[in-house]
Design a protein around this nucleic acid. Structure first.
Lengths: 332, 332
DNA sequence: GTCCTCTCCGAAAACCGTTTCAAAGCGGGG
DNA sequence: CCCCGCTTTGAAACGGTTTTCGGAGAGGAC
């Protein structure tokens, strides 16, 4: 991408190419055109180092994630990459795989490459140690909340999402609503349970038993649904902590002859299409809007790079996706 | 972030700072310490351009994908990122979302950033147009086969993987083996069917009906299994084109009272843990070894960057993952 | 043919950040 | 006081790219 490459491609000398690109006189229009075209084709950019302009934004941001294999980082990454592309920026991707040493190594690597900013993508929407003191460029935390309140964190609003789901169930006439979810070590699980609890309290309802905390698997969903039905045979809705659990619960309900949604409605969480849309019946669920979350992270990073750094925690609202598992509206 | 900044901050001269950072002698321990601290504080990184290393190596490769949202690109990316990290390189990620204009834009962007090479990650292990003529640096195609035989493509060996699955079923005494898979527009579906056909022919068996081509969904797996059982009530094994289809087929078998694996064995494909391991029963399936595929792509890219460019198609073998859906060995 | 203008080129110069080199400071011991 | 080793430094060297400058061709007008 050096000037001589451009000159070479344009079939001209370096000197002429330089003049053409700097809009100086003494270069024939046809030649200038040729040089400009060659420069465009090679997406040539004058080497800033040679001039005085070193304050060179590399227009690259580092994206540091911990669980790229999981299913949350990807939509965030897609949203971020899209937003960055609109700003003509690129993303350098690093997956620390949850290892602190690896993470420090990647931070150094990215800094060596002079990224203009960092997006730290969490894996569980939970609190995580701030990395900002190690990083002299702007940082935004996405799907994670930094321990340092001066950092800017953008998290999914689990409590709000759960409220959407619970309100949907309540407004459809469900009155005895159980909750099956993942490990209570996950803040997401606790927040979702809290959202449900709040809505039920507001509606004057009592939960059908305590939330069943277990794991984020279909297997647990199947097992817990049996437990729930045994303890509370009259439940008319189950709000599940994610779609896998919901798919498992739906399995058990069918095995036990309960009709969905006629006898029992089910709501999942995450809107993981492979499970939610292909379930029997397709699941009503809450979409985390992770792509918007990623895009929001980028926009806040841009603002920080322009000197308008924010701080605190921003909650990205979810979105209820209604499918057949909650059935038509019930009047009561 | 220049050396003089560091020297300034350390209260020393540029020359001394240089020696301190390069671990040369003739610098007092106390001074060296001061310089190192200043460098760390400024996260200084020597400007590579000034050394002899300029020969264009930015130690960055561009990874161009089409369907990051799909589940195949990610493991490849992880494998590649891991292999690159070992070589102290980084990956610039771009997702063209299947759009040709977007793809060209990203190619230009990545070239402008002087990536040392490209990895083009496909979304379906199928043939795709070569991009090499647009790219003046080495290119390796992963999970895709370039139309240009002079390019180097690394694909998953679908036929070989299907043979592993089929041989497993045959060696466990299954004799009436049906096949349910995705659309026959997918080469993966056709290759997997071909692998099964070959093994059955070698074993002197006839397939239980023609392969049922449909879609890659659980829903189709459920539906097709009903069709298969109606047409061939005596099938004792179903090889499914992927794990979702297999999970759907397992659903139907349970609904119809067939025991898995006692009456009918099931084998999936892809080893998508969420479906395969959490199925009832857990699925025997074929793992594509996508991480190795990504790592292999990187290694071939390194070779190409060193001037040893390869060409042709390399088939990355799969790996059989045995779970309960094919049961214990049957003696016959 | 000669002159003039316009265009382009090769070589040299300028710029930048880093490294190297030779010389200068500095303190202590003889 | 002088010598000597250690440390530091300013200036020059280096490798890289871009810009500048004088000159060389080409083509037309007279």
């Amino acid at each position: 991408m050096t000037l001589s490459d451009v000159a070479n491609r344009a079939g001209t000398s370096v000197a002429t190419a330089s003049k053409a690109l700097n809009s100086r006189a003494e270069v024939a229009p046809e030649t200038r055109e040729r040089v400009l075209r060659a420069a465009a084709e090679l997406s040539f950019q004058p080497n800033v180092l040679a001039r005085g302009l070193i304050s060179g934004r590399t227009r690259t941001v580092g994206l540091l994630t911990d669980e790229l294999g999981g299913r949350f980082a990807i939509p965030i990454l897609l949203g971020a990459e899209n937003a960055l592309g609109n700003g003509q920026m690129s993303v350098l991707l690093c997956d620390a795989r949850g290892d602190a040493i690896r993470r420090q190594h990647y931070i150094r690597t990215l800094l060596a490459r002079q990224v203009d900013g960092f997006i730290v993508v969490g894996d569980s929407n939970d609190v995580r140690p701030s990395l900002t003191q190690d990083i002299p460029v702007p940082v935004v935390y996405a799907y994670a909340e930094s321990t340092d309140p001066n950092d800017l964190s953008i998290v999914a609003d689990d409590e709000g999402g759960a409220r959407l789901a619970a309100e949907h169930l309540v407004s459809h006439g469900r009155r005895r609503i159980g909750h099956i979810t993942g490990p209570d070590t996950y803040r997401a699980a606790r927040d979702r349970a809290a959202g449900l609890r709040t809505v039920l309290a507001e509606a004057g309802l009592t939960p059908a038993g305590d939330p069943l905390y277990g794991e984020w698997s279909q297997r647990w969903g199947r097992h817990a649904a049996r437990l729930l039905l045994a303890a509370r045979p009259d439940v008319d809705a189950i709000f599940c902590g994610n779609d896998q659990v919901a798919a498992g619960a739906a399995d058990t309900l069918r095995d036990l002859g309960r009709r969905i949604p006629d006898d029992v409605a089910i709501v999942g969480y995450d809107n993981w299409e492979f499970f939610a849309a292909d379930c029997r019946p397709p699941l009503t669920t809450v979409d985390l809007n992770l792509e918007q979350l990623g895009a929001a992270a980028v926009n806040h990073l841009f603002a920080a790079m322009d000197g308008n750094a924010g701080s605190g925690v921003i909650r990205q609202p979810g979105r209820l996706v209604v499918r057949e598992s909650t059935g038509p509206v019930l009047h009561h």
